[in-house]
Each structure stands twice: as C-alpha cells, then as structure tokens.
Design a protein around this nucleic acid. Structure first.
Lengths: 196, 196, 196, 196
DNA sequence: CATGAATGAGAGTTCATTCAT
DNA sequence: GATGAATGAACTCTCATTCAT
C-alpha cells in the first residue's frame, strides 16, 4: 500500500471518528462511514473490512495522539501541585468537549466485545492515568504539599469520579459549574485548595 | 385494554428487560424481543410500536421497583452511619450484579435520545440518590458521626464515583476487592472507618 | 408451517426447477429464483435459506416423481425383452427432453459439493437403474431371450453410455437418429434386434 | 503484440487453466484468475476482456497440446489391436487424472454458450476420436483381429461410455477397478480379451 | 386479540470494469 | 505496458412494518 493509500486511510479514519463520536459504536454502519467519507460503496472495503476494524484504528490513532498531549505541557520546575492542577485542567478540557469525544463509542465497543480483552484501550488508559496520578500524589505528600494516606486508592477514586462525570455529560446535561465543583472537591480531598 | 392485556404487556416488558441487559439499547431489534417473548411478529406490535417505547416502559417499571428497595430496609432506630452503610451496601449489591442490569442500555438510550429530556430517568435517579445522601451526611455531621464541609458535593462525588465504577465493571473487568476498596475509601472521606 | 405454506413451498420448488434447468446450478442466484417466482426479496428467505437448500429440495421431489414413472408402465405378462425395450424407451424419452431436465445442474451440484457424499442422488439413481437392468438381463438370459456373460457390467455399460449421451445432448447438438442408433446398438449387444 | 506479451499471455492461460480445473467454468471470476496469476487487476484486461475469452484460449491450447500425445506413441509395426489398447490406456490415463482436467469446465462452457456453435471443441475432439477409432476397428476387422458389424457406431459407443465415465468420476466417486472393468468390457465387445 | 406470511428498504459484500498515473 | 485505486451494479441477507385471516 503506497503513500497515497496511507493518506486515504488516515482520511477515512478521521471521518469515521466523527461518525463514531456522533453515533456511538454499535449503530454505526459501513454506509454511515461511506457517506461521511463521500466515497464509493466498494471503496471503503479496499481499506477496511468492517466497522470494528475501523473503530480499532480510530482508537489506536486516538491513543497515539493523546499520549503526549499532557506530558508536553509539564514545565521543568513544576511542583507536584502544579502538575496535578495541570492534570485536572487537562481532564476538564477533555470533559468539556465531550460532544467531540469517543467516550460512548468506546464504552459500547468494550461492552460489545468484552471477550477480546487483549489490548483493552480503556483499561490501559485508565491504568496509565492512575499510575501517573499516584506518583504525583506520593511526591506531593513527600514534599508536604498534599495529604493522603493511600495514594493509589486516592488516584483511582479521582479517575472513577472523572469517569462518572463523563457519563453524566453524555446522558444528563451537566454544567461547567458542576464539573468545576467536583474537580475542586477532588483536589480538596488531597488537602489542596483551588483558587480560580 | 383488559386485564389480560396488562398481563401480557408486563410479560413482554420483563422479557425485553433481559434482552436490553444482554445487548444494550441500540442494537436490540424488534425481532430480538419477539424471539425472547416467543410471541408472533404482529403480536408485539399490538402492544408496542418500537423498541424505544418498550425500553421506556422497562425503565418505568425499573423505577417503580427500585424506589422502595432501599427505604424498606431502614430500621426505626438506625443512626445516619448505619443508614449510610446500608446505602453503600445496596449500591455495592447493585454493582455486583452489573451483568444483570440496564446500565449500558440506559446510557445508550440517553446518549441516543438526548433531545427528549423530559422525564430523564437517569437524572431523576441520580438526583434522588444525591438528595438522600446529602440529608444523611448532614444528619451524620450534626450528630458528630461524620465530618464534611460540603455535604451536597460530597454526596455527588460519591455518586459519580459509583457511576464510574459501573462503567468500569461493564467495560473492564473489575474485581470485588477493587470495588470494596473504593467504597471504603468513600466512607473514609466522611471520617468513617469501615470494619468488615 | 401450515397447509398454504406447503403449497407455496411446492410452488417455489417448481419454479426454481425451471431456473435450474435453464441455468445449471452454480450460476443460479436467489434473485433468479425470486424473479421466477414473482415473489419478494425477503419472501423467499421465509422458505429457503440458500440456492443449495432449494436445489436439494428440487432433487428430492424429482426423485419422488421419477420413481414410479417407469414401473407403472410395466404390464403383468411382459417378457424381459419387452420390459427392457420399455426401459430403453423411457430413457430415450428422458434424453429427448434434455432441454427440460436437471442433468447439468445436478452435475454441477455434485461437482461443487463433492465432499458431502451422503445421499448422493446421482449415485442412488444410477445404482438403482443398474440394479434393475441387471435383473432384467439375468432374466432375459435365463429365458433364452438375451445373450450376456456379465450382466452387471453390461448394465453398467448401458447406463454409462446413456450418461455419455446426456452430456452430448447438453453440449453438442445430437440428433434423434444418433440417439436411436446408439440405443439400438446397446440392445444388439445383448443379442436383441430392434425393429422400429 | 511483442514477444514478451505472448509470454505473458501464455502464462495467464496456464494459470487460468488450473483455476478452471478447480472451479469449473461459470463460477470462475476475473478476480480468481487475477489472484491465481498474481497480476494486477488492470493487467489482466490488457490481455483478455472476459473469462469466456480466457477459457476459449485455454481450450485452444489444450487442443494443440493433446493432438499429438496419442499418435506419437504409436509404433511402426503395431497391430490395430495394439493401437486400440494404447488408445484405451491413454483414455484411462486421462480419466484417472480427472481431478486435473477441464471436463466439467468444458461441459459448463458449452452448456452456457450453446448458441455459438462454431468451433465446438468438444464436438471436434469427440469426432476426431470417433474417426480414429472407426479406422482402427475397420482395420482390426479386416485383419481378423476384431469382430464388429458396425464400426462407426461401435466407435461412438466406446466414446459415449468414456464420456459417461468422466461424469461419474466428477460427480460420484468411481474406483480404478470400476473403470478398468468398463474399459475391458468395451474391448470384449469387439471380440478382444484383455489380460492385464 | 393473535398469527405469521409478505413486502421492501437497507446493510453487508464482492466484482467487473475503467482510468489516472 | 502495468498498476491498483475507484466506482457502481448486483447479490446475500435481515428486519421493521403491514395486513389478510
């Protein structure tokens, strides 16, 4: 597959991503993606054999994109508290554009395909975030900036809350204030006081 | 619609519920429900015009059932702490049978039909739980059993975490220990120490 | 499946039979049969899931029909020679309407599905004919009407020749005279002289 | 069309031949041949516009190849009986490798395209064989080696039987013994006794 | 009320065929 | 010449929905 082919594949993935954001995972048809790409019926099949395959590619690219977004912003001389704030801010930013993300599609995907647990993108992402958060909290505690007896569980709790907020945004209408309030509360739980 | 009609409708709803638990909301077809009910094709249409209508009825009945489950267990002389423990235990019970609940179907439903916000079952349920929890925490604080500066947000945070755990159970494999740990942590956040 | 359903099934089989006669087996599509039956797209699927299933039913019915056609014509006091003549005449009749028979479709079917050898209609039919012929020749020899040292092989040879003639009719243009000549020759091989 | 072009055409025909042997005629697609040749989609169209055209070329080459195979083996001083034995042996060899020949494809082809009778390969081949056989039998009779009142019909009958055996091999499972028995029987019909 | 046959829209998939490179 | 991307027609199959019985 040549250079141009790769281009087209990328183009399809980008368009398909929008479809998955819009409609979730299960109810997306090949036709939906064909229409979104303004491509011919057979054309799509040259690149992908099924919506599942496309979705996996979308997820993969998503993962690659997302990886460095957060870390790239961290300054040299940042304190744990600074970094945590950045992290929370990044999460908030992510939440706020919930109308443009793949949360529900991803949930649906893993609900539908639970058997195939190898390379579970959701779990990997969650674990990575928990790991990073735990380190951060441990450092914060060490340096006396935070208070926490069980950093791992605290980190997990933060992530579960964020996960709960994601769902809330997708199914119920949540305001930005409500989200801010919850995120602040999470920081307070670590002995930090937010002042924005 | 006669007595027998009501019976049949109830029967369909019960069978349909199982289908929605199994497959979520969007990918359920009329045929799935027809097969589950062992009913004739035309028969189902006598009672319901679409899967959406059926799902709404399922949700309604779910709501009616769920309402008194918790309150019925509360003793006369229970302390706020006792009641909170009961509440958490009830939530855990609910979580543990996540393979038998409508969580994903409900998420999918509200994701698909966000426009029609009237009678949002999810929101109502969430708000009710938050309301009850808030009262409980306030009482607990008053009676010196708990510590909390912002009972409403604390209550919300508990519920968001539980929501996050629900998703985790459906998409990633969570163990009972992980759930216990998180629920205990929530209680600790209110100054309570769990000892089971 | 009720009475009427059976009727329709039979109707479809009859129409499909014509299609198979016309086009053989492998190149017949569900659409061809749908068109021939003047039925709706989904309609056919209510009765049959694939062309293979339909073809097997066609063959089955063919078998049932064919069974008694020959035997029914045999008189009480017929000599082996008479019966053999009848048999040959019946085979000729069958050959002559080769434009209306399933020979090529059947060949194609068994060529395509050789693995599934159970209930091989072709073999059964062939064997049955050979068996009957063998008996006939044995009786003819006993009664001094025919001459043959190896009735089984002679019977088989007759049938192979007929099979060869079938193919000839389907692929090359054979005249009635050519067929007559061959069939007569077969009888002469048994010491009989045809005089039509 | 240059030298190299001719080479490629020959290559395609050889590969296509294998496909036709494997799948018959009608169900072979351009794609099957493209895959078998490991050639580009457009590439094939530079040489052939359809499977029909390819098949005709395959047949033509087949004809050219087959012509001299038999005659080349005939010795100077062979008797008609010797030659006939050779002929039958050649036919048997042909039959035994029925899994590698174009019989069914050819049948299907002529069944599908009966209208276009010009250059009917099957008929030509059949006629040629009958002609040669007839001469052989006539010579055999003349020299007192064989007995036959109607050499032409006898020759035809031999060929029809062989045709019938071909079909048997393709659709029913025939053993080598069965074939031997039939071929011997044909020779016996000419007053010859086989002793292998 | 209840049935299930029937319809047709629409999704999935494969290929013959064309054409820019 | 050769490639393979692209298109669209045609086929398979499933289902929502209707309707005569």
């Amino acid at each position: 597959m040549g250079e141009k082919s790769q281009q087209k594949k990328k183009y399809i993935i980008e368009k398909a991503r929008e479809v998955f954001i819009e409609k979730g995972y299960r109810s997306v048809t090949m036709k939906d993606i064909i229409d979104a790409c303004d491509i011919s019926r057979g054309g799509l099949y040259l690149y992908f054999p099924s919506t599942q395959e496309i979705f996996l590619e979308v997820l993969k690219r998503e993962q690659e994109m997302g990886d460095d977004v957060f870390t790239s912003q961290v300054q040299e001389d940042a304190t744990p508290t600074d970094i945590l704030s950045l992290f929370i801010a990044a999460q908030k930013a992510e939440l706020m554009k919930s109308k443009e993300n793949l949360t529900m599609a991803t949930y649906e995907y893993y609900f539908a395909h639970k058997p195939e647990k190898k390379d579970n993108f959701l779990k990997d992402q969650f674990s990575a975030a928990v790991g990073a958060l735990t380190q951060l909290i441990e450092m914060g505690v060490e340096e006396g900036e935070m208070y926490c007896e069980d950093p791992v569980t605290a980190a997990e709790e933060i992530m579960y809350t964020i996960e709960g907020l994601k769902i809330g945004l997708l199914t119920v209408e949540l305001t930005e204030e409500e989200i801010d309030k919850q995120l602040d509360y999470l920081l307070q739980g670590l002995g930090l006081v937010q002042e924005n």
